[in-house]
C-alpha cells in the first residue's frame, strides 16, 4: 500500500514536470504543444548517448541534454509556431502535430527503432529503507526535483521581471505589448523553460523506466497533458497536483484493479473530474462576457 503510494508519487512527479511544460506554453501561447512529448524523447536520447557512448558522468549529461532541448524548443517555436501567431488555434495544433511527427521520424532515422536500455544513473547509491518499504534513489530525486522546480517556477513567475512579463502576456497580449513587453521574446523564453523541463523529465522517466524508443515520449506526453488539464491548465500548482494524482491513480489502478485497463481508468477519472469541475481542480473559472 505505502510502496504503491510512493511509486505513484514518483511516477506522478515525472508527469508533473512534463505537465509544467504543457501548462506554461498553454498559458502563454494558448496552444496545445503536442510536440512536447517528443522533446522529452530527444532529451532522453541526448543523455543516453552522452552517458553510454561518451562516458560522461550523469550530471554533465543532464546539463547537456537540458541545453540541447532548450535550443530545440526555441528553434521549433521560431520556425514552426511563430509564423502562425495570428492563425486559428486548430492550424497551430496541426502544425504542432507535424512537428511531433518530424521529431519522431528524425529520431527513427538518427537513432533507429531499436530499443535502448537507459543506464541507471543512480547505480552506486543503494535503496533507502524506511520500515519495510524500500525507496529507490530515483524516486527521491524525482520528488525532490519536482518540488524544487515548482518552487523556483512559482518564485520566477511572481518575483522576477521576466516572470511577471510572462504572466502579463498570458493575461492579455495586446496590453502587454503596450506596456513595453517584448511578447515574442517572452514566448520564446516560455518554450525554452518548458523544453528544458522536458529534458529533465526525459532523463528521470528513462531512469525509472529504462526503455528508450523514438515513441517513448508520446504516451507520457498525452498523460502529462491530461494531468495539466486535470489540475487546471495554465496553473503551475495545478500541474503539480494533477500530475501527482494521475500517477497515484495509475499505479493504484494497476495494483488493485487491472494492469491492462489502468490507462482506461486514468482517463475515466479525468473525464469525471472534468464533468464535475470543467476548469480542472485548481483552474480559474472564466466567466463569458456577452
Amino acid at each position: 500500500m505505502l510502496g504503491n503510494l510512493i511509486n505513484g508519487i514518483s511516477l506522478g512527479s515525472i508527469y508533473a514536470i512534463i505537465a509544467l511544460g504543457y501548462t506554461m506554453v498553454y498559458g502563454i501561447a494558448k496552444m496545445l504543444n503536442f510536440a512536447h512529448g517528443d522533446v522529452i524523447m530527444v532529451g532522453a536520447y541526448i543523455a543516453f548517448y552522452s552517458i553510454s557512448y561518451f562516458g560522461m558522468p550523469a550530471l554533465p549529461a543532464l546539463l547537456l541534454s537540458i541545453a540541447v532541448c532548450t535550443m530545440l524548443g526555441i528553434i521549433i517555436e521560431k520556425l514552426a509556431y511563430k509564423p502562425l501567431r495570428n492563425a486559428t488555434s486548430l492550424a497551430v495544433l496541426i502544425t504542432a502535430i507535424g512537428v511531433s511527427y518530424f521529431l519522431q521520424n528524425a529520431a527513427l532515422l538518427l537513432w533507429t527503432s531499436n530499443t535502448k536500455v537507459f543506464p541507471n544513473i543512480f547505480a552506486n547509491i543503494g535503496a533507502i529503507k524506511i520500515g519495510s518499504v524500500q525507496i529507490a534513489p530515483v524516486t527521491l530525486v524525482t520528488v525532490f526535483a519536482n518540488i524544487v522546480i515548482m518552487l523556483v517556477l512559482t518564485l520566477f513567475t511572481s518575483k522576477t521581471k521576466m516572470g511577471k512579463a510572462m504572466r502579463a502576456v498570458s493575461e492579455d497580449k495586446g496590453a502587454a505589448t503596450l506596456m513595453g513587453i517584448n511578447v515574442d521574446r517572452t514566448i520564446s523564453l516560455t518554450f525554452a523553460i518548458g523544453s528544458g523541463l522536458a529534458a529533465i523529465a526525459g532523463v528521470l522517466l528513462c531512469t525509472a523506466y529504462p526503455t528508450l524508443m523514438p515513441t517513448t515520449g508520446a504516451m507520457p506526453g498525452i498523460k502529462a497533458f491530461t494531468a495539466a488539464v486535470f489540475g487546471g491548465i495554465g496553473s503551475i500548482p495545478g500541474a503539480m497536483l494533477g500530475g501527482i494524482l494521475l500517477g497515484v491513480i495509475e499505479i493504484f489502478a494497476k495494483a488493485y484493479i487491472s494492469t491492462q485497463l489502468s490507462d482506461a481508468i486514468v482517463f475515466a477519472v479525468l473525464i469525471i473530474v472534468l464533468i464535475v469541475k470543467p476548469s480542472g481542480l485548481l483552474g480559474r473559472k472564466i466567466n463569458e462576457k456577452v
Binding site: 509564423p83 502562425l84 492563425a87 492550424a91 502544425t95 502535430i97 507535424g98 512537428v99 511527427y101 518530424f102
Partner: peptide, 14 residues
C-alpha cells in the same frame, strides 16, 4: 510527410 504538413500549414496561414 511531416515537413509537407508544417509547410502547408504555414503557407496557407500566410
Amino acid at each position: 510527410y511531416a515537413i509537407v504538413l508544417i509547410v502547408v500549414m504555414i503557407a496557407t496561414n500566410n
